[in-house]
Simulated scan of single mutants.
Amino acid sequence: MNNQSQTLHPAAPQTQAISTGSVVTQVSSVLAGIVLLILAFAWLARRLGFAPKKVSSQELKMTASVQVGQRERVVIVDTADARLVLGVTAQHITHLHTLPPAAPEENAPSGAAPQDFRQLLQNLVKRPGKHP
């Protein structure tokens, strides 16, 4: 009868205790893999040209802009050897005129204090044609 009681009531399954060290190791290795995957995708995007190119502000600088239509504007862009007057639309950029390079004192930053964040945000949010 002793044999029958063992067959009717099988032994409870053994549960293994999971050590904290192994869980931390698994989680950190998965996180490290994800970070490496993100870095690999960023490198690949840069190599294939999906990332925007950085343009130095000394090479090209937009000094003036005026809105002439709903989606059209005229801008003045300073380069090293000329100032370009360009017409910009949603589809095209048209060269309108070439001006001589600006005098060095014109390119020097003015002594005015920089705008605070609130003023910069208001300038960005402000729509053309509407006055506060």
Rank of each mutant, 00 (worst) to 15 (best):
D81N: 15
P109A: 11
W43C: 07
W43F: 11
V30D: 10
I38H: 02
Q122R: 14
R83L: 08
N2E: 14
A64E: 10
V125W: 08
E59N: 11
L44H: 01
Q58G: 06
A51F: 09
V23L: 13
V125G: 02
E59F: 06
V77H: 06
Q58S: 13
L99I: 05
R73S: 12
L96R: 10
V77K: 01
Q91H: 10
H9Q: 08
I93M: 10
L37V: 02
M62L: 15
Q4E: 15
L48S: 13
I93Q: 08
A80H: 06
Q70T: 07
Q91F: 06
A11H: 04
V88C: 07
G129N: 04
A113T: 12
A32D: 14
L36H: 03
L37C: 07
S19T: 12
Q119P: 00
V35H: 01
Q91N: 11
L44A: 15
Q4P: 00
V85H: 02
P52W: 05
S5G: 05
P128K: 02
M62F: 08
A82I: 04
A11W: 02
L48Q: 11
G111V: 04
T63P: 00
A45M: 05
V66K: 10
L84V: 01
G129C: 03
G21M: 06
H9N: 15
D78G: 04
L39A: 12
V66G: 03
L120N: 10
L8H: 05
H131K: 08
P114L: 11
A113I: 05
P52K: 09
V74E: 02
L120I: 11
A82L: 07
Q122D: 11
V24K: 14
S19E: 08
A82T: 08
D116F: 00
Q91W: 02
P114G: 03
L121H: 05
G69L: 05
L8P: 00
A40Y: 03
A82S: 11
L37M: 12
N123P: 00
V27R: 12
K54V: 13
L44R: 09
R47Q: 07
